[in-house]
């Protein structure tokens, strides 16, 4: 079997205890929530730490709360809970849908929102055994000096692959982070940086406590679309969220958020299109926009050129679903 190298598991009961443990052991420490990303990575010796701090018993990290203005979701909330929660389904359907498309039923019973947001980046050259990576000669994210995705590149461009992130950004979500120095908040849109070795701007000492999402107005429509080869188990190969803000029957703003590119999601705003009518032309325009401005890399294991084309189609289909057009056009598109 695959081996986990020995570590100490801490199971704190309070936030204070947890943040102190993190501060004490950083950087040789990770939070473990559902463990569905951390443990495979540790088994492949891609992540090597000797202390784990469990998020399981921290009350502040659990539960979904609805206020007048926000939905607050604890970081340790399970993906299945998230996908089926009536408030989330009603107010944030794209997030519920994204959660429902993650991995497999068993993994959704284990994995959490916090873990998904902090999900390590993925790359065909890193999600491999030690033997494989040794044969490769390593890369910037393991023990090597070279990136195989962008030869000569200076930084790791492994792909952000978290299914929930694009819709969280589209909804304008904010995370709450705790450390021994106190609490801080950050919009999810600013949480990621262009460094695949550590792409979340969450310090090793920090704990993700909760996500707060403003309840969208009725004029805001958000859709998430994922494409992978299989209908289950697979990580996204294309991952896009589209937000359309509508006023008086025309576009008043919005964004397209694309995941599964490099370490950072690409956020494109729709200012230039304000005033557009809600029709197939808009779908085409948004498709063209992402085609021009977001480029999948040959990092995750599927043909990058096709992923680029597919991303465009998924954006169009997201738009169509939001403006009440049939998802597939009646006549084939060029």
């Amino acid at each position: 079997m695959l081996r986990l190298s020995p570590f100490t598991l801490h199971q704190p009961k309070t936030l204070d205890e947890a943040t102190q443990l993190l501060a004490q052991h950083a950087p040789d420490v990770r939070v473990i929530s559902g463990g569905t990303d951390l443990l495979p990575n540790m088994k492949l010796a891609q992540t090597k730490v000797t202390h784990l701090v469990s998020a399981k018993f921290l009350e502040e990290l659990h539960g979904i709360e609805r206020t007048e203005t926000h939905v607050r979701i604890g970081a340790a909330t399970g993906l299945k809970t998230l996908a089926e929660d009536p408030d989330v389904l009603e107010l944030l359907p794209a997030l519920a849908y994204a959660a429902s498309r993650i991995a497999s039923p068993q993994i959704r019973n284990m994995g959490t929102l916090g873990g998904n947001i902090s999900l390590d980046t993925r790359c065909r050259y890193i999600n491999q055994s030690e033997l494989w990576r040794e044969a490769l000669g390593g890369c910037l994210k393991s023990h090597g000096t070279e990136c195989h995705v962008v030869p000569g590149g200076q930084g790791c461009v492994a792909a952000l692959s978290a299914d929930t992130v694009p819709s969280l950004i589209a909804y304008g979500a904010v995370v709450e982070l705790a450390s021994d120095k106190g609490l801080r908040r950050a919009p999810v849109s600013e949480l990621f940086q262009q460094d695949g070795t550590w792409h979340v701007r969450i310090a090793r000492e920090e704990l993700l406590v909760a996500v707060e999402i403003p309840i969208p107005s009725p004029q805001t429509r958000v859709a998430y679309r994922k494409w992978a080869v299989r209908q289950s188990i697979d990580f996204p190969l294309v991952s896009v969220a589209v937000r359309l803000d509508v006023a008086d029957g025309v576009l008043a703003g919005g964004s397209v958020v694309v995941g599964a590119l490099g370490p950072r999601p690409r956020v494109l705003t729709l200012e230039r299109l304000v005033g557009s009518t809600l029709d197939e032309k808009l779908a085409q325009a948004l498709g063209q926009m992402v085609y021009d401005r977001a480029r999948p890399l040959p990092n995750i294991p599927y043909d990058a050129e096709y992923r680029r084309e597919r991303m465009v189609v998924e954006v169009r289909r997201a738009v169509r679903s939001l403006v009440g057009l049939p998802e597939r056009p009646l006549t084939p598109q060029a």
């Binding site: 079997m1 598991l9 199971q11 473990i32 559902g34 463990g35 569905t36 443990l39 495979p40 469990s54 399981k56 299945k80 039923p105 068993q106 993994i107 019973n109 284990m110």
Partner: peptide, 13 residues
């Protein structure tokens, strides 16, 4: 009661 994966569950958990 929930189906979960034993290979990704720490025994102590």
């Amino acid at each position: 009661g929930e189906p979960q994966l034993a290979c990704l569950t720490l025994a102590v958990d």
